[in-house]
Design a protein around this nucleic acid. Structure first.
Length: 733
DNA sequence: TTTTAGACCATTTTT
DNA sequence: TGGTCTAAAA
């Protein structure tokens, strides 16, 4: 197989990186400079031209998305599946190591991965158990503390701060947390890295095995690595012939999460004779956009240095819109979106970026009014939803009935008459006799310590779990999931409730069954390779934690894309709006006292600007409602840092004018039309109505459709009530 | 067990 | 302002 013809499409710098001789290589890849292409081609080059076996390759990314893209592009390039190659995320590969060597990790074969929400809940449980006052000590802080320490490679036992009450308390919580995880065979995200790192540092032989295996390693987004990830890599690549890291110090926006840009500098010190290649030719944006980005980022100190350029044309100037208010800013976006459509564009080519999620609301409202479809990134992902986690807890108990977390979560979900009192007795018994909740329940039942009603319920619950376990031993993965969802009564519980939310939940549970069946059929072949030896059920549970699903919500095909600047990283759009470019908002006020923080904000802005291919709109408002208060705003300093000659002021008004003129574009959605949109089932918000029994009142809210529709009315005499619309027989007052 | 009222607080987020 | 969380009330 020849790859050389495929190298022709590379530019000189890309080719230099792809074909660099074995050794250590640092690729500084600017935004839109084809870094994934370089990474993929380098692997292909190693395999096809240098005769490197896929088994010798380790390729690490941060996100599942990046890993999947790398894998599929590699397949395309090599014309075959890359069997035996380790391509995955830091966490995914760590997980694989731990599954393969669970015993050496001091775990059991059926260990389970927990996500950050599980971790948080667990820490709160520890707070209760230790009688820690949540007003004084914040569980979130403790969670941050534990993860930070783990990311630094530190165990609770290694911490000591005599006299410092804060550190002491946190360390104590950490210790208890470790204990709990060990007892319940739970592994959190940070633990995957730390645990697999320790696995290798404690087993010289094993370490040597992997070190001699992975002759060629490649790492994506290197600027985002934290301390433990760096050590982890160093350990695995100890005797590698080539180590290729790709990154961009200018796009480091996760410092607050423990990412260390310094790792780029450290790499050059730790890995001798590192050659550096800069990818500066950009294939994404117009030169105007690139000039703006370059000028902005020049204001940061201590950069590795890079200047983006393009062979493409200058394109349009950058639009700067000074809005009167945040509503006006949103209307600008609406106007431009309509214009884009008129000129033959598609909504999905537009991205609206903002610093914080709270900003999306006003934008959404304006888009809804204008009838423009949009998709918003953010919110809960599929596997993070409460009902899904409930169902997964049943599965977890099927795998390991001593999983106390899962036990506690679902023992009374759906409600089966096992209340706090009963459960408290079991918890006390469990801690006294050092039993799992499961075993403690057995003892409590045997010794008749419970009321008969509770005993019956608990017996039924345990019988259910045992029955489910039997089903899972005989049937397929989808059978197990379906049984867990059906037999537990979980889905029926939601179906019995007549409101939209419960219905959605029931639908989600059905979707979970589908997901498990897809997972089983799609991945059967890949399991062994991706995860090592494990059961389908365990694999599915881990998958649910490690790849919690898409963050997007909304299902329109051609929709405007709304997201934070952080989530825009790695994406590109023909036209980009950056909203809320105001001091205190972007850069965020929390960055005002720290130069490092300010520089990270600037990099975030740089990331935003470099998402744009053809058009860029920078928006800010003179006045914005923040926390219910109206405030006058100052434009962001980042706006001044963009050279004036690249900018076109598109503000539609004279400084002194008032709101009225901006509502030109509302001509299509007049007051009457807005009112109609808010009219539901013949009623509208704020309407005065009369009820035969409760008298006069005001309509506050609606819920549901058709027969299930309910209306929330505040009655002057009788207070506020939810009424079933069909039965209420309301009349207009 | 579920609903509701009041307190509190307010970047960014992947795994 | 509004979303989330907890404690109290129905």
């Amino acid at each position: 197989m020849s790859i050389s013809s495929k190298l022709d499409i590379l530019n000189p710098a890309q080719r230099e990186a792809v074909c660099a001789p074995a050794g250590n290589l640092l690729v500084l890849a600017g935004a839109g400079s084809g870094k994934t292409r370089v990474l993929v081609h380098r692997i292909a080059w190693l395999v096809a031209e240098q005769g490197v076996s896929p088994l010798q390759i380790l390729a690490v990314t941060f996100t599942n998305k990046a890993a999947a893209e790398m894998r599929s592009r590699l397949e395309l390039l090599l014309g075959r599946r890359s069997h035996g190659m380790w391509v995955g995320t830091f966490h995914g590969l760590s997980h694989k190591l731990m599954r393969l060597h669970w015993a050496e990790c001091g775990l059991q074969e059926n260990f389970q991965v927990i996500d950050s929400d599980d971790q948080y809940q667990l820490i709160r449980r520890i707070f209760k158990e230790q009688n820690l006052n949540e007003d004084r000590w914040d569980p979130r802080q403790a969670q941050g503390f534990i993860n930070r320490k783990k990311d630094e490679g530190l165990r609770a036992a290694q911490l000591s701060h005599p006299g410092d009450i804060y550190e002491e308390t946190m360390a104590q919580i950490y210790r208890r947390y470790e204990e709990y995880c060990q007892q319940n065979v739970l592994v959190d995200f940070a633990e995957l890295l730390l645990g697999s790192h320790e696995l290798l540092s404690k087993n010289a032989e094993l370490a040597l095995h992997y070190q001699t295996r992975f002759k060629h390693s490649l790492v994506d987004e290197f600027q985002d690595t934290n301390t433990i990830q760096y050590q982890w890599l160093k350990q695995l690549t100890n005797s590698a012939e080539s180590m290729t890291v790709v990154g961009d110090d200018d796009q480091s926006i996760y410092g607050w999460r423990g990412a260390k840009i310094e790792n780029i500098h450290r790499f050059q010190k730790d890995y001798q004779n590192t050659s550096v290649v800069r990818l500066e030719q950009n294939y994404r944006s117009t030169s105007t956009i690139l000039k703006a980005a370059n000028a902005l980022i020049m204001n940061n100190d201590g950069r590795m240095g890079k200047t983006l350029w393009t062979e493409g044309e200058a394109g349009e100037p950058i639009n700067v819109y000074c809005a009167f208010s945040e509503e006006d800013e949103a209307l600008y976006v609406v106007r431009q979106a309509k214009k884009w459509l008129e000129q033959g564009g598609v909504f999905s080519e537009l991205a609206v970026l903002y610093r914080s999620n709270a900003q999306s609301r006003v934008l959404e409202e304006a888009l809804v009014r204008a009838g423009i479809p949009y998709v918003i990134y953010g919110g809960l992902r599929f596997f993070e939803r409460a009902e899904i986690k409930d169902a997964l807890s049943y599965l977890r108990l099927m795998v390991n009935c001593h999983d106390n977390m899962a036990f506690e979560r679902i023992v009374n979900v759906p409600p089966r008459g096992i209340g706090d009192k009963t459960f408290e007795k079991i918890k006390v018994l469990a801690s006294q006799q050092e039993l799992s909740l499961w075993d403690a329940t057995l003892v409590a039942l045997k010794d008749k310590m419970l009321t008969s009603r509770a005993a019956i319920s608990l017996e039924a619950f345990m019988a259910l779990i045992i029955r489910l376990r039997e089903i899972s031993e005989q049937g397929s993965l989808a059978d197990s999931v379906e049984a867990a969802v059906q037999e537990s009564g979980l889905i029926q519980y939601f179906r019995d409730q007549f409101n939209e939310r419960a219905l959605t939940r029931a639908e989600n549970l059905e979707e979970l069954i589908n997901a498990s069946s897809d997972f089983a059929s799609d991945l059967t072949e890949e399991w062994a390779e991706a995860l090592g030896p494990t059961t389908p059920l365990l694999a599915f549970l881990s998958h649910a934690c490690l790849e919690a699903g898409d963050r997007r919500s909304g299902d329109e095909q051609s929709s405007v894309q709304l997201m934070t600047l952080h989530s825009a990283k790695g994406l590109e759009f023909p036209s980009v709006f950056i909203c809320g470019l105001e001091e205190g908002l972007f850069p965020h006020h929390s960055a005002k006292d720290s130069l490092t923080a300010l520089e990270e904000e600037r990099r975030l802005c740089y990331v935003g600007i470099t998402r744009a291919m053809k058009e860029l709109h920078l928006c800010y408002a003179e006045k914005r409602r923040l926390f219910g208060r109206e405030e006058m705003r100052r434009p962001s300093k980042f706006l001044e840092e963009v050279p004036a000659h690249l900018i076109k002021d598109v503000s539609s008004r004279v400084k002194t004018s008032r709101a009225y003129p901006y509502y030109d574009d509302w001509s299509t959605s007049t007051a009457a039309e807005i009112a109609t949109k808010e009219l539901q089932n013949g009623y509208y918000l704020g309407q005065r109505v009369v009820h035969a029994k409760f008298g006069e009142g005001t309509v506050l809210d609606f819920e549901g459709q058709g027969e299930r529709a309910r209306i929330h009315v505040h009655f002057d005499g009788a207070g506020s009530k939810w009424l079933v619309l069909e039965l209420a027989k309301l009349e207009s007052a």
